[in-house]
Structure formats: C-alpha cells, structure tokens
Design a protein around this nucleic acid. Structure first.
Lengths: 204, 204
DNA sequence: AGATAATACGAGCTTTTGCTCATATTCATT
DNA sequence: AATGAATATGAGCAAAAGCTCGTATTATCT
C-alpha cells in the first residue's frame, strides 16, 4: 500500500469536537489569509489563532498545503450549489445571468479571501477535484451557450473561457476596491458578458 | 536625517559591472518567480541563480521586497512606453485599441511573470510610483472615454476601472492557458471592451 | 467502571529564511 | 605603481519555518 496522498486530509473527524477543531483551523486559516496575507500564513499561526495546538492541526492535515486545499474546497462548495441551481434554468440567458449573480455574490462575500485563494489554487499542484470543479463551471457555461441559436457555430469553449475570465477580472477588482453593492456589480458584469457576446441580456 | 526608505535600492551602481550585477539579480528574480513560484522565491536562491553572492545582493537592495519592487518597476517601464504612445492618438477608439494591444503584448511576453507580479504588487505596501503608474493608465483610459460624445454623461471613472479589470482578467487567463497568438487575443479583448461600452470597435 | 479508541497537547527537532559584516578583490585616477 | 573608492565574497547568526512524537486528556461503548 502506497503512502497516502500527501495533500489529502489525514483523517476524518469522528467526534463532534474534532469537527469543531477542523472547522476552527479552516476559519483561522481563512482569516489569516485574507487579513494578513500569505507571508504570515504559517501553520503555527493558524493553530494559535484557531485556539488549537499545532499537534492537533497535523492530526488532520499532513501538510500546510493540505489546509489551503481544504479551505479552497470549503469555499468552492458554497459557489457550486448556486452554479448548479442556475444550470437548471431553461433560457440560456437566464442561466448566464444567474451564474453571474452567483459569482458576484461569492466574490463579494469575502473579497480578499476569494482573491488569495484564486492565486493559491493556481500555484498548487493540480488537484483532481479542482480540475473537476473548473470544468464543471466551464461546462455549465458551454452548455448554456450551446442552447443559444444565435451563437451556433461559435467557438463556445473559448467563449466560455473568456466569459469566466472577464467575470473574475471585474469581480476581483471590485472586491479589491471595497465595493459592496452586489446588484450594481452584477449589472456591470452582465453588461460585459452580454456585450462580449453581442447579445441582449436576460430580462429578470 | 531619517533612515533611507527601506524598500528603495540601497545604492546606485556606478560601474558597469555593478550594473550587470543588478541586472543579473533582477533577471534571476524574474525567472524564479515565473518558473518556481513565490514559495521558492528566496534571496539566497536569487543570488545563486544570478551567479552572485548573497552579500552583493544586499549591497544594492536593503530587503527582499526591494528586489521585487525593482522588478515590478522594470516590467512596468516596458508597458508605460506603449501606453503613452497610444495616448497620443486622436480618435478615442484608436486610443483604446492601441492600449489593448499594448496590454495584451505585455501580458503574453512573460505571462507567468506578469501574473505573479500583479499579485505581489497588490500585496506590497503601496509605493508612490506604483500609485502613479496605476492612475496613469487609469487616467489614460478616462481621458480616451472623455473624448467620446457617445459616452457623455457616463461614469467614466468606473467604466475605466471595469475595462482595465476585464482586460486583465482575460489576458491573465489566456496567459495561464499558454496562449501565444497576440492578434487573436487582442481581438477578443477588443470585443469585450467595446461590447461592454456598447460601441463599435476601432477600425485599424 | 473499566477498557479502548479518539482527540488534544506542546516542547523541541531540523531546516530554511532574511540578512550582516569582516575580509578580499577589482576598478578608476593620478 | 600607488592609493582610495567601489564592488564582490560567503561563513554564519538570529529568527522563524514546517513538522514529529511521546504524553495527557476526553469521549464512546460494553
């Protein structure tokens, strides 16, 4: 039997206090990343801020990066739900509009955290779930575009990449500037997305 | 007399071999950042890769961040020239088009480096030149938009922010995917920018 | 209550980090 | 050739990093 994946959680908490420990670690990691930045993001600090010993941290995470990956997964799960809900809509414009809304709300919830995690995710060795998740969002966009007769024949794969990229660009910058008006930001992203497609936006 | 700025270069090279040392340090820093990532970005490594002793590095840079800042400045200077040239155009659509071209070429020249430096710049304490440079690009966009009668009355400040953000988003993602076709990427960014504005693009 | 498994602890190890400083070498000038 | 300024060196220090492991505590189950 080979060694366990060195970036997967070491063990699953079986008792509720253990679950609390893990949750405290992840939340402490999030707070340090978003408030102090990657330079002060150390395992000793995480444990201290979580009110937990360093030994406990390494009971559940085999390495520092494993904490980061778990945190990425925690945040991504929040977004995934909304994305999947949007996917159920019938009108392709509505699908896109809802996905934009989900992305904007996700980014404005904890802007600094979202930005740092985006960067960390790019830096980390490709994790299988991460790839899945990316292609899931990407796939949802491609699927929505595929339902549009107006866009028949277009390179939907690349369109989807660009739409995702420009959305991320605008929301990242808005978060960095301290914007908090989700509705306004959503309207601007929609304007960008549908403007790029040369299509009228969804009418919600 | 107060201490020198702890992030400014410590001394200016007076001999040509010193200038070569500084150049070697910056290029080594760039290569490490773009190929190995911030985690392996250490002063000892930079000096080793530059073929220079660690002592020499600290003769010219008082701290690690000073190297990063100098590198940011080196890369930014390349972009600044093109941006200023674009600004001289008369037609506002042409100004935007040229600025897009400059941004795209800049990003595709060393994609990974550009991305990391964007992030480092956000993390670093605000340097005066950096602020100037940002507002310079931003100001150039605002100025271009101001020449458009079609956009009279619009919030040009925010438009400029969004245009810059979506451009960065698309070019970053393209660089990350390994795209190399600058003309194609430029066309897509132009489509996004002018689509967002609801305006026909420049006809070059 | 007793036994076992799960959880928590934290001193301290090994390695690496940013950086200094005493010393050596090279250049420019006369 | 001689002198002083500029440049280059790298062993090594103090601090901090990631992480281990033996021990103590708490929960669960019969």
């Amino acid at each position: 039997m080979p060694d366990r994946d060195p970036l997967k959680p070491r063990k699953t908490p079986r008792q509720s206090r253990a679950a609390e420990t893990v949750a405290a670690i992840l939340e402490a990691a999030a707070r340090i990343l978003e408030k102090d930045g990657p330079a002060l993001y150390t395992t000793n600090r995480i444990a201290e801020r979580a009110g937990v010993s360093i030994g406990s941290l390494y009971q559940y995470f085999p390495a520092k990066d494993a904490v980061t990956i778990a945190l990425i997964e925690r945040e991504a799960a929040l977004l995934r739900t909304d994305i999947e809900a949007a996917r159920q809509e019938t009108d392709w414009r509505t699908v896109l509009g809802r996905m934009i809304g989900a992305a904007v709300r996700h980014q404005l919830r904890r802007p600094a955290l979202a930005r740092v995690l985006d960067f960390e995710e790019a830096r980390l060795p490709r994790q299988p779930e991460s790839g899945q998740r990316l292609s899931a969002v990407h796939g949802a966009i491609v699927e929505a575009l595929g339902r549009s007769p107006e866009l028949a024949g277009a390179d939907r794969d690349r369109l989807a990449f660009d739409l995702q990229a420009m959305t991320r660009g605008i929301t990242d910058a808005a978060g960095e500037r301290g914007e908090t008006d989700a509705a306004d930001l959503e309207a601007r992203v929609a304007r960008a997305v549908f403007g790029y497609l040369g299509q009228p936006p969804a009418t919600p």
